Amino acid sequence: MTEPASSARPVAVAIRYLAIIAGGACLLLTAVCFAIACQIFIQTGVFAQSYAMVGSISGVLGILALKLASVWK
């Protein structure tokens, strides 16, 4: 018979790598959103609140995903 823990190992590794990819993508989206918000502010003088909010939420989700990847064994 096979152990249940031996079949869960590849799933845990897959979840960890997916969390790393998702965290990196979220942090990249954060950088893009803040760059667009800064560019809009520089060109027009108007604060782009929607881009800043999306960037902030994406940054928090990215940090949480990377934290999950580091804790997941």
Rank of each mutant, 00 (worst) to 15 (best):
V60F: 12
S7N: 14
F34R: 00
A22Q: 04
I40R: 15
A22F: 05
Q49F: 10
S6N: 03
A12W: 02
E3R: 11
A22M: 00
I40F: 08
G24P: 10
M1A: 14
V46L: 14
S6K: 05
C26T: 01
K67W: 13
V54L: 12
A8F: 12
S6V: 03
V46I: 15
P10K: 04
G55F: 02
L28Q: 05
A19K: 04
A31T: 15
M53V: 10
V32L: 15
L27M: 11
C38K: 07
V46P: 04
A5I: 08
K67V: 06
L61N: 03
Y51K: 01
L64K: 01
Y17M: 08
A69Q: 02
T44C: 14
I40C: 06
V32I: 14
S70G: 09
G62L: 04
V13M: 13
K73P: 14
G55V: 05
A25C: 11
I40W: 04
A65C: 12
A35S: 15
E3V: 05
L28A: 13
L68N: 07
P10D: 03
Y17C: 05
Y51F: 12
R16G: 07
S56E: 11
V71M: 08
A65P: 00
K73T: 06
K73E: 08
A31R: 08
M53P: 02
A65L: 08
L64G: 05
Q49Y: 12
A5S: 14
G23S: 05
V11F: 10
C26N: 09
P10F: 07
A69W: 01
L29M: 06
T30H: 02
C26Q: 03
I40Y: 10
A22H: 02
A19C: 15
Q39K: 14
V71N: 07
S7K: 12
K73M: 10
F34S: 02
S70M: 13
Y51E: 11
T2Y: 12
Y51P: 02
A14K: 09
G45A: 08
L28T: 13
L64R: 01
I40P: 01
G23W: 03
C26H: 06
S7V: 13
I40Q: 14
F34H: 04
I42Q: 14
A22N: 12
R9D: 01
A52D: 01
G45D: 12
Y51V: 00
L18Y: 09
L18R: 10
A12P: 01
V60K: 03
A48H: 11
S6Y: 04
F41Q: 15
C33L: 04
E3P: 02
A65T: 00
F34I: 02
A12E: 05
A25E: 03
F47D: 10
M1D: 06
S58P: 00
I36A: 06
I15D: 13
A22D: 07
I20A: 10
P4V: 01
A65R: 03
S56C: 10
R16F: 07
Q39F: 09
R9W: 04
Y17A: 03
